[in-house]
Structure formats: C-alpha cells, structure tokens
Design a protein around this nucleic acid. Sequence first.
DNA 1: TACACATATGAACAAGTGTTCATATGTGTG
DNA 2: CACACATATGAACACTTGTTCATATGTGTA
Lengths: 113, 113
Amino acid sequence: MIETKSTRLKTSKMKKGGDLTEQQLADLVETFKVLSDPTRIKIALTLTNNEMCVHDIAGATGISESAASHQLRILRSLRLVKHRRQGKQIFYSLDDHHIEKLIQVATEHIAER
Amino acid sequence: MIETKSTRLKTSKMKKGGDLTEQQLADLVETFKVLSDPTRIKIALTLTNNEMCVHDIAGATGISESAASHQLRILRSLRLVKHRRQGKQIFYSLDDHHIEKLIQVATEHIAER
DNA sequence: TACACATATGAACAAGTGTTCATATGTGTG
DNA sequence: CACACATATGAACACTTGTTCATATGTGTA
C-alpha cells in the first residue's frame, strides 16, 4: 500500500522518522530491548557499583545460574557488562555508565505517573 | 533449586537487585519495552517537536495506518503520547520529556561503540 | 591425571509481540 | 439521514524471546 504525499501537514514541518539510518535505529532498539527484561534490569541494578560472580548474581536476582549465565552473555555481547577472571570465578561489572543513566531516567519517568 | 547463602561476597557489600518493588520493576520493564520496537521509536522521533495526525505519522514512518493506530494506542496507554481532536482528525504529540531523554542517552550509548 | 568447582552452551518448549486484513466506531458535510 | 473521511479495534498469524534441563568447557588442586 503506497501512500501519496500528504496534504495535511505543511511540508516545511515534515520530518522523516528522526533522520536515523536503519543501522542506528536497529542499535537503538537493541539497546532498549536489553533493558526490557526484569532479569536483566535486576542484574544491571545488582552490578551498579558492584563486581560480582555468576553465582552471587544468580542469588541476588533470584534466578538459576544457567539463566544468569545466558543473560550475562547477552549483556556482554552488547558491551553492557565486562568480565574479569580471577581463578575459577568470573567477576562481572557494568561496562557503560549510560546504562545506569537510562535506568535512572526511566525510574524518574515511572515516578511521575 | 534453592541457593544457600553465598560466602563469596562480603555481606556488607551485598545488595539485593536494586531495592525495587516488583511493581516498580515491572513499570521499568514496560517503559523500556515500549521503546524496544523500531516502529515506536520512529513514531517517538517523528513526534519530537511535532504534532501529527495518524495518517501523516503512518506516512512518515512507513507503516500502515492500522499499524500506526495500534502502536499509538500502546504509546497512549503508557502516557507517552497525548492526543487532541480537531474535527475528523486526531493529533498526537509526545506527552513526556523523559522519552526524548531516554532516546538521547541511548543514542549517545550506541555512538560510543 | 583425576576430581570438584564455576561458568557456559545447546535444544526445546511456553509465552509474548507486531503485523495484516477485515470490520467497526466516530465525525463533519451535503 | 446518508455518505465519505479518519481512526480504532479484533482475530489470526508468523516470529521472537527467556526459561529449564542436560551437557560441555574451563580452572585450580590434590
């Protein structure tokens, strides 16, 4: 279904969907998608100012270690968390201050409803 | 599978998943989930500093009017957009500056990769 | 090397999501 | 009222996603 040029809005005010490339849009979506899961938000909050191993992350967030590992893999692939090996354990911590900022702004948002 | 108290982390540094209520967590998830869809981000960007009717929103974002209406319903239910009737048309605009802020921070984030 | 601990991975399943198509509701005009 | 325009809604479908369970990989120690 092809839409012809609208006559309802002055062309001077026309603004294409944000002038983003498809790649930028996909990256934005991916970023928000990572945070749109309760387990991953819990992990992110848990890791705020903390460096923790998988076992403790699982315990603190109330999920299995397997589930934690799967989610940490996702967070790692998007560079939201970094890891450091110390002996048998692997310690995770936040790798991006934007994450805390995003959660903070969103928290402000939900508080104003 | 019940996890016993961990001995791997000093209890003084223990921090439960962010000290949020389940409701707050659910609201946070809902907020990010709304933005984790390319169509809705396009709509949000399109509506930044613009007030537009459904037909033009559909045109600017490249989706059908039905799809736009469905998504606007979602954005409306979460108070992200507000609407104003003028004759036969309904004009939508952003209802929350936090949305622009969230997109801005996320954009900064993806730029730093 | 053999073993236990710590984490990672793969397959499979249930639950959720966004679109399309058809239809309904609401609004102004003749 | 009848009609066209603008938007909304419901059902159905394909697609994605997060968990669990079982198994594999990696690491330190005896």
